[in-house]
Design a protein around this nucleic acid. Structure first.
Lengths: 150, 150
DNA sequence: CCCTTTTCACCCACAATTACCCACTGCGGT
DNA sequence: ACCGCAGTGGGTAATTGTGGGTGAAAAGGG
């Protein structure tokens, strides 16, 4: 079970490769063995799943109904741009060009560890996203966490 | 289960390291094994969780819904600046630069033990925080503690 | 069907950051 | 007074992040 956390400002090179931060690699299950699945995320970003976490997600998706048009639409969007990829010797992964375009990524990226997946943002888009939220951290925490957890 | 208490005025060095007071270290569960997670706190301060306490928090966070936009926002803010770190031979921990900036910490820090977590403040910001609260200790106690606890 | 061109995967090398190690000072306890 | 632990400061070596180069495979055109 992964437990990604932290943010990292990295660069993406001319070949569309980004480095997976060493701090995040430590939490990838050994059986995932450098294999990741990259796909479109919620909001304007890219999600990267280690193989074991992707398998779990896939099992949930399989339970959706192929006769429900909404379900079909969701599956197409999710899988449309999904791509499996392995790390090279420098621990880099290749991000497909259409996903980079979707997330407006050019040269700099912000990498976020969100427990079971990794997110890749254009730093400016992330700032815009944060600014678009009206509520403060403290307010959201209070409403999201009904029970006392922190 | 941790039971931190007390306040300590320590210094932070040029490499962004602060010492965890020996008095607080005594209350860290042995299984946490010098591993801590540092993240953004409520108000202008930094929270430090021993590993066992962080795991509890993380388990609660995992129950949030990844399809709820408010939940996603909260998770991103919480994990954005979270970093796992182990103590060095001198019982120091490294605080990421962006967290130091967030809490306006330069050279001196105020370390508070708050039961299951440790807080790190700029001493001046803490004074300002105290001054900003209108109600007295006694008044707050009356509203917070309905049952007789002391 | 073969040759040309492009793309992709693998490899090597450098630079900056990080982690680990050692050394010093002062306070408290014996 | 001495010993030991606690807090503070700095140096060195390994790891990490980044850039580019080469050969093999694939794609496309004649």
């Amino acid at each position: 079970m992964s437990a990604f956390k932290g943010s990292y400002t990295y660069s993406i090179d001319s070949k569309g490769r980004i480095n997976i931060p060493a701090r995040l690699r430590k939490y990838v299950a050994p059986e995932s063995n450098d294999t990741f699945t990259v796909t479109r995320g919620f909001e304007k970003c890219i999600y990267i799943y280690p193989h074991d976490e992707w398998i779990k997600l896939e099992q949930n998706i399989r339970e959706l109904s192929p006769t429900n048009s909404q379900h079909r639409f969701f599956m197409r969007l999710l899988l449309h741009q999904a791509m499996e990829s392995t790390l090279d010797a420098q621990a880099r992964i290749i991000i497909p060009k259409d996903l980079l375009q979707f997330a407006s990524i050019e040269s700099e990226v912000l990498i976020l560890g969100i427990l079971e997946h990794i997110e890749v943002w254009n730093p400016n888009e992330y700032s815009k996203y944060l600014a678009s939220q009206q509520n403060s951290y403290e307010d959201v925490a209070q409403t999201v966490l009904q029970k006392k957890v922190m």
